Amino acid sequence: MTLHIVREIEKLKKRLLTLSAMVEESYQRSIAALERRDAALAQQVIDADTDVDQMEVDLEEECLKVLALHQPVANDLRFIVSLLKINNDLERIADLAVNIAERALDLMKLERIPMPFDFANMSQKVYAMVKKSLDALVHFDQGLARQVIALDDEVDELHHQTYGLVMAQIRQNPDHLEALICYLVISRYLERIADQTTNIAEDVLYMIEGKIFRHIL
Rank of each mutant, 00 (worst) to 15 (best):
M1A: 13
M1E: 14
T2Y: 13
T2G: 14
H4Y: 12
I5S: 09
E8W: 11
E10M: 06
K13H: 13
A21V: 10
Q28N: 13
D49S: 05
T50Y: 04
Q54E: 09
M55W: 00
A68D: 05
L69H: 09
L69Q: 09
A74S: 10
L77W: 05
L77I: 12
S82G: 11
I86S: 03
D89R: 05
I100E: 02
A101I: 10
L107K: 01
K109Q: 15
K109H: 11
E111H: 08
R112K: 15
S123I: 06
V126S: 03
Y127W: 13
M129L: 07
V130R: 08
K131P: 01
K132P: 00
L134I: 14
A136F: 09
V138T: 13
F140Q: 15
R146G: 01
L151V: 01
L158R: 07
H159I: 00
H160V: 09
Y163K: 15
Y163P: 05
M167T: 08
R171C: 09
D175F: 03
D175W: 00
I186N: 06
D195N: 08
Q196P: 15
Q196M: 10
T198Q: 00
N199D: 07
Y206N: 00
M207H: 05
K211W: 01
I212M: 12
L217F: 08
